[in-house]
Amino acid sequence: MIAEVPNVTLPRLFQISRAVKETHDTFTFELKPLDGGEFTFKPGQFNMVYQFGVGEIPVSISGDPLKKTSIIHTIRAVGGVTKAMRKLKKGDVLGIRGPYGTDWPVLRASGHDVAIVAGGIGLAPLRPVIYHVLANREKYGKVILLYGSRTPLDILFMKEIEKWRARLDTEVAVTVDRASGAWRGNVGVVTTLISKAHFDPAKTMAMVCGPEIMMRFTVQEFITRGVLKDKIYMSMERNMKCAVGFCGHCQWGSNFICKDGPVFRYDTIHDLLMQREM
């Protein structure tokens, strides 16, 4: 007898239960499954999100891993599909496949200082880590969030960042690349925050997400501070079409970003990172 093989390309239908404009080009959807079931994921994983008649794109999950009744996606409108998605409202339906990919080392980070560095929309895939770490605060040493964005208007999750900053058991710093005189915060690239952050390099787990160049510079700063290469993680990005290892698009050297990533340990990808056009 020939076994039935499930069709992994079929999406599960979710309804937008909340649509929030985050910044001028970024928005967040809360999605609830139409089948009433649950959705579980690990921090750092992503979904393939399909809009009827428009297309399908990979989007990291930006919500709380403890909340199993909904999915949160924070999306930046930069391409055709994301620009169409921005127009969707509460009640509209999306197709979801996932969760896919590797996750951030929140378990391995137990007993460590946790240094999270995010750039731009890169804060979205790291927000589940912050939720997890704060929900299990006693398991971690110092918790540091360093966030860089282009301008003050591009800062994601501003209210939440303020809440995290107000806690006594976190160290939160935000910086922007450019600002007018009205901005009271830091100006300068996010890497400049690392040398001043208070963590013990010998027992720090670093997690980095943002544009590839920003990640490369950030990792250098961590190494300069003495963080071990096998305790630095970063989330990579390549074109993804199927997310299950069949389409070949997301290959990066020997890796399929969709299943061997998107989260990689730095020492395993160092050589690849230094190769151009891979």
Partner: peptide
């Protein structure tokens, strides 16, 4: 130099 590159301007959509 990093600031000049305006890296967040070209960040993809996920």
């Amino acid at each position: 130099r990093l600031q000049l590159m305006d890296v967040y301007g070209a960040k993809a959509d996920w």
